[in-house]
Amino acid sequence: MLARIVASRDLMLALIIVAMCLLIATRFPQFIAPGNLIAIAADSSVLIILVMGQLCVILTRCIDLSVASNLALTGMLIGMLNTAQPDIPVPVLALLASLFGLMLGAFNGALVWLLGLPAIVVTLGTLAIYRGMIYVVSGGAWVNAHEMSPAFLGAIRQEVFGVPVLLWVGVAVVAIVAFILRRTAIGRAFYTVGGNPTAAVYAGLNVGRTQFVAFCISGALAGLAGYLWVARYAVAYVEIARGFEFDVVAACVIGGISIMGGIGTVTGALLGALFLGVVKNALPVIGISPFWQLALSGFVIILAVVINARSARSRGRQILPTQREAAP
């Protein structure tokens, strides 16, 4: 029965998103024009990618607050690399970005795994370190659009079947993470390790190593997002994506992922990210100042966790014989 509620939770969130779009469309029909919907999805692509990584980490009962700093640092390095070596092809740059991000994620993961440090403290620390490193490598300078190669900027804007590459990358990441979580042993281990660490040990799993892998995935995706972000906004500087980690966690919470680990789906995470994306794009359309966005997302986070809290008080153990058992 609870499984149905969880399933219908995703459905409810999807319905809310659709209802929101339709409601806006009654006043501004162009909002649900296919082109605009694709633009909104593409706009949410970076968030979706980060949310997929965060999903893996949160499933294992950890949290990665360093993703936005990772994104910014990787983005700056890739931007500088492009400026210095405009001939490196974009796919190689994207790969390098992922690898560098993976390294940063592995650093978080190693501290959690090998030293048993709490993930929240480690990633609060690396949030600051990675952000500061941007200044160290760039000297505070900006990488501007005119310094970037046309291929660097153009690659994600090309359209394939009418959809920009930026969005295709997001779709691919969702598919890959869905595959990992559903079809690989390590993906299933995220659920077991986060759901019941003791039982995971009894089942012969290494909790710390599993968490390490989740951090690596989160880091690699943040690195990839770093390239996408810089290419999309055509600028790299110290402050990009500052505070974006809270949007990522917010999307996860809205998507029904339990911060206590072990519960969460790709669908939920995706819907959570799309919800924030639609809200962000809808505000200017309906004439609400974009200054409302932050407060709204905060409000929605709290609403979502309260709804997810279900019955906080434990219902007690089943000691009395149930009717089925009482029958002779």
Partner: peptide, 29 residues
Amino acid sequence: IVTAFALPSIVVTIGTLSLYRGIGYIVLG
């Protein structure tokens, strides 16, 4: 919010972090 719903304070205060600062933006732009 934390005590009445027995929620993890880290999530709740990440939420209010956005909410409180967001209210500031609404008021002051």
